[in-house]
C-alpha cells in the first residue's frame, strides 16, 4: 500500500489535486461463496496485446487480455510517467495477477478464472470510461463472472 507520507511533496500535491467523485448511495451485492465464484481481472494499467491499438489521451475503452495469453505478449501503454514500472517489467503478475488467480482456482480458493480479462488506462477521466465500463459489465455476465478483481495502477 502506498501511503501519502511515503511520497514526495510534488506527488502528494499532484494526487490530492484530483477531484474525488461522490456517489449516491453505496450499493452492495452479495453472491455465492468465494470457492464458487468465477473471477475476472479488470486493470487500469494500460495493458494490451502487442499489436492492439495503444492507449491515448482519448482512450476511454478497454483492451481484452485472454486468460491463456502468454506474459511475453502483454505490454503496457499507460500514459502516466509517475508510477513505477519495474515490478511489471520483472513479473507481469505485479500488475496483472493472472498466474496467482489460476493457482487459487487450482487450490479451490476461488471457483474458476474467467476466459477474458480487461484493461483500461487509468490516466483519463472516469466519465470517459463509463460507456465502455457498462458494455464490459455485459461481457463479464456473458462469461459467467460473478467477482471482479479490480487492479488499479
Amino acid at each position: 500500500m502506498v501511503r501519502m507520507e511515503d511520497l514526495s511533496e510534488p506527488e502528494v500535491i499532484g494526487l490530492t489535486s484530483f477531484p474525488t467523485p461522490s456517489y449516491e448511495g453505496s450499493p452492495w451485492a452479495g453472491g455465492p461463496p468465494l470457492s464458487q465464484r468465477r473471477v475476472a481481472i479488470v486493470s487500469t494499467a494500460g495493458l494490451q496485446r502487442l499489436g492492439d491499438e495503444t492507449f491515448t489521451r482519448e482512450s476511454g475503452d478497454y483492451r481484452v487480455i485472454p486468460k491463456e495469453l502468454a506474459a511475453s505478449d502483454i505490454y503496457m501503454s499507460h500514459l502516466s510517467t509517475n508510477f513505477d514500472r519495474t515490478g511489471f517489467q520483472q513479473d507481469v503478475n505485479i500488475a496483472f495477477p493472472i498466474d496467482r488467480l489460476k493457482e487459487l482456482a487450482e487450490e479451490g480458493v476461488i471457483g474458476s478464472v474467467a476466459d477474458f480479462h480487461y484493461s483500461f488506462m487509468g490516466a483519463i477521466a472516469p466519465e470517459q470510461m463509463e460507456p465502455s465500463a457498462r458494455r464490459l459489465a455485459g461481457l463479464l455476465k456473458d462469461d459467467g463472472v460473478d467477482a471482479v478483481l479490480l487492479c488499479p495502477v
Binding site: L50, T54, A70, S72, Y75, M76, R85, F88
Partner: peptide, 10 residues
C-alpha cells in the same frame, strides 16, 4: 531470464 520484455510497445 524472464522470457519477455516490455520494450517494443512503440
Amino acid at each position: 531470464k524472464r522470457g519477455r520484455t516490455t520494450v517494443g510497445v512503440s
